[in-house]
Design a protein around this nucleic acid. Structure first.
Lengths: 144, 144
DNA sequence: TGTCCACTTTAGAATTGTTCTAATCTACTT
DNA sequence: AAGTAGATTAGAACAATTCTAAAGTGGACA
């Protein structure tokens, strides 16, 4: 795909979505929006999206991928899931419990298990075993 | 604190803990174990623990901090919480829902909200606003 | 008790994912 | 059409973590 492959209708729809989110409708954003929102729900990382863009004959820099994902994120067009082993906290409490994470202060607070419980756990897809359940409740300092 | 500040009783106790976990009892491990398990539950990052060790007059390399934390982690002496913005997945599904994360494949699968619900949410500590709730259920490929 | 070997630790380099910088470009207003 | 605020770029910088290869050490066993 390159940008010109989009039909006027697609461009209108995606442009509208961008503008509604307070973002200018630019070529790279339209193209990435098309990849992201063109067909059903998706999970991407910056890397997978970049590769996909390149495969589609689109030349966008890595920085633009990051900028765009973060702009879409703050505009509420995307949500974010943090999973990998990077910037970890280690907790001497190895019992089953969950956490408040205060974003401004990068500080963790334990939540006793009985204050937040999962009402039901879905079955692991067959072929997989449960390795753990993480519940992180993110907090922001309240506006003054 | 330096290693020699530990009483024989403390050394015995920590040594036993290490050995029970299948780890040799070495000076750096004993000293770090003392910092970690010496007083109540704690949250540390590699960095905070390293600084604490240095302040205690202990000279341990960064690599040892990481090695030790990871060894304690796989031995079950610590648990890990992943919170920060690093290695993120972006999800076009912005409705309230949670995820399976398949560790071997670094792949995400949506869990419909009705299959995993929090039975109750603790109140945010005063002065803080709820910014989001992340539930990640980690999966490992089942042994063959 | 001394020797030996597998396991540990170390310093520093390498890697990975992400953000920053400063220059260039472009969408939109007038 | 020109000006300007915002967007994009390549590449450098950064931060957290892991790797590497060499030197050190715990503890089993003679």
């Amino acid at each position: 795909m390159n940008f010109d492959a989009l039909t006027p209708e697609q461009i209108d729809r995606l442009s509208g979505k961008l503008r509604a989110a307070g973002l200018r409708s630019t070529r790279p954003r339209l193209a990435l929006a098309h990849l992201l929102f063109g067909a059903g729900n998706r999970h991407v990382t910056a890397e997978t999206l970049h590769e996909e863009a390149r495969n589609a004959g689109l030349s966008v820099s890595q920085a633009t991928i990051y900028n765009t994902l973060n702009q879409f994120l703050s505009a509420g067009l995307l949500s974010e899931v943090i999973v990998d082993h990077a910037r970890s906290y280690f907790d001497t409490n190895v019992t089953d419990h969950h956490h408040f994470f205060i974003e401004d202060e990068t500080r963790l607070i334990d939540i006793p298990l009985d204050e937040v419980a999962l009402s039901s756990l879905p079955n692991a897809p067959s072929g997989y075993d449960l390795a753990g359940v993480d519940v992180v409740i993110r907090l922001l300092k309240a506006p003054a």
